[in-house]
Write a protein that binds this DNA or RNA. Structure first.
Lengths: 230, 230
DNA sequence: AGCGATAAATCTACATGTAGAATTTACATG
DNA sequence: CATGTAAATTCTACATGTAGATTTATCGCT
């Protein structure tokens, strides 16, 4: 039951390390990664029998994994017609940012209220890496640092449901990025993160919430400016 | 494939009307309703074979429906151990209200920004019914009017993801209410709704957002006051 | 070549089979 | 009567079977 990489007709390639846990989870993760990597592009049909064959597992866990993708809004199901990878355009992305704006604001405020200097230290490290990524002109490292910054903050919020929702939103944003290449630019992102960090360091919940909201609002406005022109 | 009611050993009872759509959807809806009605209480094991037998369908759609409940946080899955109906206590509920506070605020502001007088008219009708429910001392009618008030507003927000999230939160709140009987009281709820309505009628987005947030914040504070005493 | 009809292939949605894990039950022992 | 233990039962997670819907391929006709 070793999973084979997508788009490969040939034999085994993953190490024989028995992945722990349920096959369903492994398949779900594999499909998510394939989607984020652009291997399964928006619009692609997610044929359960085909994927099962490619991955070397039965149809059951694939069916479950695809259903999960649909509930995460990474795929769209039509009855009796199967699922396709979701297409998230700039208009949809703007709607997602509306939600993210208030939720990131909330998470940041809660993080300041509950968390100590461990958070500050961790964010300092991430910002350092972020700066390095930009100096190196590494888009991949920039994205990684960007995502980790938000991840660390939301996980410090102490609200499990909030963490889950923000994870879900980030996944959708990641999918949107496969198609839409609209960013405010790494340098601006880092500047925003620095502002958020400063408010956290000063343990000012209100300022932190506002800075986080302003960050996402800026992303959204940038997006809407471009969308109008398209 | 006519679904039989839960907790019944005897024969058919639902009308022979062929419910349209997928069996999975019907089962999912049936389980949700059974949970909200308190027929499936928090902690109850959701045995797939047992439910399949009771509902007169095969295990496949039941399995899918239970998986969905888990993703909605109405059930909790443990690997190799199946799912149980989720137990949402006052502490969890407070966390949900933290999220709801900012999302209801957002939805209300967006509703004011996008929507016209149709919204105002509809809310007026709901508030009239709500007042009636309270005069009649009908808890059921109060709950229905309360839920509809929030439903109409969120659907006027024009943000599909936001609508979905708020629906999910409301479902979890409904489940919590099966166990926890902590309310600020119907009269206060109606007063809050009136305040929200007034801001909407005046087409004041900021005031509407603040009123909606204050409403949920009040519910949360009331809850936390009780939780401390428990 | 373009187009409609029809046949073949494919897929979804549901039903059913089953190994191995987890739980429950039965029963012996102190 | 409590408690450990082994047998029996039940369940999850995955594999597989299949009717009927949908899609794709084929082919005749213009």
């Amino acid at each position: 039951m070793s999973l084979q990489p997508l788009n490969t007709e040939t034999a085994e390639s993953l190490p024989p390390v028995q992945r722990a846990g349920r096959i369903t989870d492994t398949v779900h993760e594999a499909l998510r990664e394939a989607i984020f990597a652009g291997q399964l592009k928006p619009g692609t049909k997610l044929s359960v029998p085909a994927l099962a064959k490619q991955l070397g597992v039965s149809r059951s866990p694939v069916r479950e994994a695809v259903a999960r993708l649909a509930q995460e809004n990474l795929a769209v199901e039509e009855t009796r017609r199967g699922a396709v990878v979701a297409r998230i355009g700039t208009a949809d992305l703007a709607r997602l940012y509306e939600i993210r704006e208030v939720l990131e604001g909330l998470a940041t405020r809660l993080a300041v209220e509950h968390s100590g200097k461990k958070l500050v230290t961790e964010l300092e490290g991430i910002l350092r890496e972020h700066r390095q990524a930009i100096d190196d002109h590494s888009a991949a490292a920039h994205t990684r640092a960007d995502m980790r910054f938000h991840q660390v903050i939301r996980e410090a919020s102490g609200n499990p449901g909030l963490i889950e929702l923000l994870k879900g939103l980030q996944a959708q944003v990641r999918l949107a990025m496969v198609t839409t290449t609209v960013t405010a630019g790494p340098v601006l992102a880092l500047a925003d993160h620095h502002a958020i960090f400063e408010a956290i360091r000063k343990a000012d919940p209100e300022a932190a919430e506002q800075a986080a909201r302003a960050h996402i609002a800026r992303l959204r406005h940038n997006l809407e400016g471009v969308a109008k022109r398209t």
